[in-house]
Each structure stands twice: as C-alpha cells, then as structure tokens.
C-alpha cells in the first residue's frame, strides 16, 4: 500500500535519517518511535508532501508521490489524512464545517449524513454546531481525527495526537482510535515518543535509531 524508500533527512544541518525504507500493507497500523529531533515527524511530513527533503521517494497505492526528495503530487491531491499535535481545528468554523471541509464536493445531504455518522462513531453525536473553543481537549482530538478520516484517505498520518491529553483519557482514546481505524480499515502511521501508546495502537512498531529504522 505505502512504500517509502531511501529516505534521508537533515535536521539543523545534521543528517538524522539516512536511507530509511518502510513498507505498509493495506489496513496496517504502524507506530514510529524516536527521541525528539530524531526525524520521525519530518518523515511523516515528507510522506504528507509538506516538506521537501534531501533524498527519498514515496509511493502510495501504486502512484509515485515523491521522488529524489521532491514532491510530484501536491499535498492537496495525495489523499493523505493527517492529525496534528494540537489538532489544528479551524477556530472560525463549526464542528460540522470542520469535519465536512474535506468532503465539500459531496452533495449537502451526503455531507450531513457522513458527518453525523462520524460524530456518533466517536461519541460526539449532535455536536455539529459547536465551535472548537467549546470542546474539551479530548473532544477536539476526536473531531480532528474524524475530520482527517472524512474523505476516506488512503493513509492516515498522526503526529503525537495524544500528547496534550491527560493519562486517563489517553489510554481510553488510544484504544478507541485503534478500533475506529480497524473498523474503517485505514492504513495509518502514528508518530509518538510513548512506547506504551505505540504498543496499544499499532500492529507494528519501529524506532529510528542511529539514522535507521529498526523494528521493535
């Protein structure tokens, strides 16, 4: 499904990842561990097409997205979903507007149906008209997750999505997210520094160590 080959990343003029290779199967959940500055977030952002890098290629569902560290397909055309560390919900849009942002090409009634389904999936049914600042951290996190899932992306990328939640919430939500990802059969990569979280959520866990990916 996803294949990343020969990826090299520089961070503050130092090579932190050198020749990384990663293959994911359809529906597989992969967790990427690493210390801060180890290049794990940059790897994710390269897959998303946000930052260029020195060397590397990305192929998704048989389509070449990036080659030689340069992006061939722009982020908006990649069908890649991403959950950011601080959720990045648009503060001026309601929950409905946020979640339907990526599916605005659908007829309005379909959008409504889809958003309502997704909201019930994460236990937030009826929250369509709320604004992000009216939601708790955990709720925002869940909205951000279903916003990314709404267009049914080929792959979901999560950059430390649980880091700003308290411990109790975190565990519960991690399990819930795993369940949702499995239900929707979404291929995903989770970037985290928390080994427990990685083990709970992912099918497979890797760690960036000495500039290389090692499976744990």
């Amino acid at each position: 499904m996803l294949s990343v080959a020969n990826l090299s990343i520089e961070y503050q003029n130092k090579t932190v990842v050198d020749g990384l290779t990663l293959e994911l199967a359809q529906g597989e959940i992969f967790a990427l561990l690493g210390d801060s500055g180890s290049g794990k977030s940059s790897t994710l952002r390269f897959i998303a097409g946000l930052d260029n890098t020195k060397q590397g290629s990305v192929e998704l569902d048989g389509v070449r997205l990036s080659d030689h560290g340069q992006h061939i397909v722009a982020p908006e055309s990649r069908e890649v979903g991403m959950v950011f560390q601080d959720y990045a919900l648009f503060p001026h849009m309601s929950v409905f507007k946020n979640v339907s942002f990526g599916i605005n090409h659908l007829p309005k009634s379909d959008q409504k149906k889809r958003v309502s389904e997704l909201l019930s999936m994460v236990g937030l049914q009826g929250s369509e008209d709320k604004y992000p600042h009216q939601l708790s951290g955990g709720e925002q996190q869940r909205v951000s997750l279903i916003r990314a899932l709404a267009p049914a992306p080929k792959i979901l990328l999560m950059d430390e999505p649980f880091s700003s939640l308290d411990v109790n919430h975190r565990q519960q939500l991690t399990l819930q997210v795993r369940q949702i990802l499995k239900e929707t059969n979404t291929t995903s990569i989770l970037v985290t520094h928390d080994r427990d979280e990685a083990n709970t959520l992912a099918d497979r866990v890797g760690k960036i160590k000495h500039k290389q990916l090692t499976l744990v």
């Binding site: 998303a48 982020p75 990649r78 069908e79 890649v80 990045a88 648009f90 990526g102 916003r147 990314a148």
Partner: peptide
C-alpha cells in the same frame, strides 16, 4: 497544512 491535506 491541514487544509491542503484535506484537498483544499
């Protein structure tokens, strides 16, 4: 970034 990844 998130808007672009959502295809905007």
């Amino acid at each position: 970034q998130s808007a672009r990844l959502l295809g905007a």
